[in-house]
Lab assay of single mutants.
Amino acid sequence: GKELVLALYDYQEKSPREVTMKKGDILTLLNSTNKDWWKVEVNDRQGFVPAAYVKKLDP
């Protein structure tokens, strides 16, 4: 199944490769191989958020 992450903080995108999220958002995790930036999908948009700003949810 899909892996989900919880947004721990608000994040405002600073480049087109990033996405904005609000604290409490549930996002689909697409790629977590980079320790600093994780690729997520939110509202049909894909992009990166700081890994420290999200937490993996237990399945």
Rank of each mutant, 00 (worst) to 15 (best):
G1K: 09
G1A: 14
G1Y: 15
G1I: 15
G1S: 14
K2T: 10
K2R: 07
E3S: 08
E3Y: 06
L4I: 13
L4P: 05
V5N: 01
V5Q: 02
L6D: 02
L6A: 13
L6K: 15
L6F: 07
A7C: 08
L8M: 09
L8H: 05
L8W: 02
L8N: 05
Y9L: 13
Y9N: 14
D10E: 05
D10Y: 02
D10P: 05
D10W: 00
D10R: 02
D10H: 07
Q12H: 08
E13M: 14
E13P: 07
E13T: 09
K14T: 14
K14N: 14
K14P: 06
K14F: 04
S15H: 13
S15N: 10
P16F: 07
P16Y: 06
P16H: 11
E18W: 01
E18M: 03
V19C: 08
V19L: 13
T20I: 02
T20R: 08
T20F: 02
T20L: 02
M21Q: 02
M21V: 12
K22L: 11
K22A: 15
K22Y: 06
K22T: 13
K23S: 08
G24Y: 02
G24A: 03
D25P: 00
D25F: 03
D25M: 13
D25Q: 14
D25I: 02
D25L: 03
I26W: 07
I26F: 10
L27T: 02
L27K: 01
T28N: 10
T28H: 05
L29P: 01
L30Q: 11
L30Y: 04
N31K: 13
N31T: 08
S32V: 07
S32Y: 11
T33A: 11
N34V: 06
N34R: 12
N34E: 13
N34W: 03
K35D: 15
K35H: 13
D36H: 07
D36Y: 11
D36G: 14
D36L: 09
W37G: 02
W37Y: 15
W37K: 07
W37P: 01
W38H: 04
W38C: 09
W38V: 12
W38T: 03
K39G: 06
V40H: 00
E41K: 11
V42N: 11
V42M: 11
V42Q: 13
N43E: 15
N43Y: 11
N43S: 11
D44L: 08
D44S: 12
D44E: 14
D44P: 02
R45E: 10
R45T: 09
Q46R: 11
G47S: 02
G47Y: 03
G47L: 04
F48Q: 06
F48G: 02
F48Y: 09
F48C: 07
V49A: 08
P50F: 00
P50A: 00
P50D: 00
A51W: 00
A51R: 12
A51Q: 07
A52P: 11
A52M: 10
A52K: 14
A52Q: 10
A52N: 12
A52H: 07
Y53D: 03
Y53P: 01
Y53A: 15
Y53Q: 06
V54I: 08
V54S: 01
V54P: 00
K55Q: 12
K55H: 05
K55Y: 03
K55D: 06
K56Q: 14
K56F: 07
L57G: 04
L57E: 05
L57A: 08
L57I: 13
D58Y: 07
D58L: 09
D58C: 05
D58N: 10
D58K: 04
D58R: 12
P59K: 09
P59T: 06
